[in-house]
Design a protein around this nucleic acid. Sequence first.
DNA 1: ACCTGAACACCGTTCAAGT
DNA 2: ACCTGAACACCGTTCAAGT
Lengths: 208, 208
Amino acid sequence: MGRPHTPLLDRDRIADAALKLTDRRGDFTILDLSRALKVTPAALYHHVHGRDGIIALMRERMARTVDASGFGQLPWDQALRQWAISYRDTFAAHPGAIGMLAAEPVADPAVHALYEQAATALEDAGFPRHMVLAVITAVESFVLGSALDLAAPPAMVTGIDAATTPRLAQAAAAAPPGRARADQAFGLGLDALITGLHHQLSQTGDNP
Amino acid sequence: MGRPHTPLLDRDRIADAALKLTDRRGDFTILDLSRALKVTPAALYHHVHGRDGIIALMRERMARTVDASGFGQLPWDQALRQWAISYRDTFAAHPGAIGMLAAEPVADPAVHALYEQAATALEDAGFPRHMVLAVITAVESFVLGSALDLAAPPAMVTGIDAATTPRLAQAAAAAPPGRARADQAFGLGLDALITGLHHQLSQTGDNP
DNA sequence: ACCTGAACACCGTTCAAGT
DNA sequence: ACCTGAACACCGTTCAAGT
């Protein structure tokens, strides 16, 4: 009882346990979390700003695993591609958590630093200044949407009735199975998006 | 007390009120909803499968406002574009509800019918059968991600420190303000995506 | 069939007390 | 500073009773 000689909790342990719980059930409860950490629910509130604070912590933790090292080192399109793939991979590693984490953006200094690098790379590549944010946003939107698709495939691919929707049924039969379906859609979309961005860049006319 | 002569509730009224509440607060409570409908919380359960059932109802209702009439009438790229824009507009009309609704797909016969038309149009346009689902999914993912961007703009655009991230600050200053920022990103991304899909179609070599 | 009133299990959060 | 035990307000859901 009372304060322990060595602290039982810290923010990292809390975020870890919450992520693990959410991976399994798609959600987490303060009570379950406290049980997993062998602690009273009230103990958590000495380290974290409530349940929302824990979710924010999970987001920050995941954001830090995204590889954005390509910006400034690789050509803009390769860097953008690498970032998008790593971004989605991060979500793919925690499918159960996607629904809870994807809906809101991360607020983290490290994320701002990443955007700085990305903005610099895109402007240096010749994208006009007023388009830079839009390019980054478009790619990020596609990544987030693809993460949702990974977590909860659309009605399109489940419960198809071959009698009423034969062409859809054929298309579904021809598509790769399981996880490969989402991977194919992401790869195809990312290719298209970057090809299209290339095209737009070549039309602005002020690239070096 | 007891059963009223004329029913006080129906599924449409419930979905409407829930959508209105969620628009305002980003969420809704069974108690608040029952108050808005001037009914006891328990009354709702005679019409709807709990809170999740109400959310599903909201999704179906919104899905029905999406205009997919272009498939089979317009060229595939124009139809796809019209669908994507209408899809996003539907979310844009209920910004507060996006976070709650976008995370999971709609399960509705009408949605299957739409996919049937889209799959038919894309295959007829020359897309190989195994790619059809991926094309639709890629566009849908982009729309869903763009809806999230509409509801909760990324850290990129809020709380930028010009001292530590000057290029990002410049890019943000050059971007359109408010809602126009999200619109620009969506438009740019949709253009790029469709340009890229055109490119991929021309490379498959079996288009008519 | 459709509503009310009362009850239930569960949830996140607060706070005094203890070391 | 960091944890426990107890308490609190709130939530979704169930169900017998009433017409």
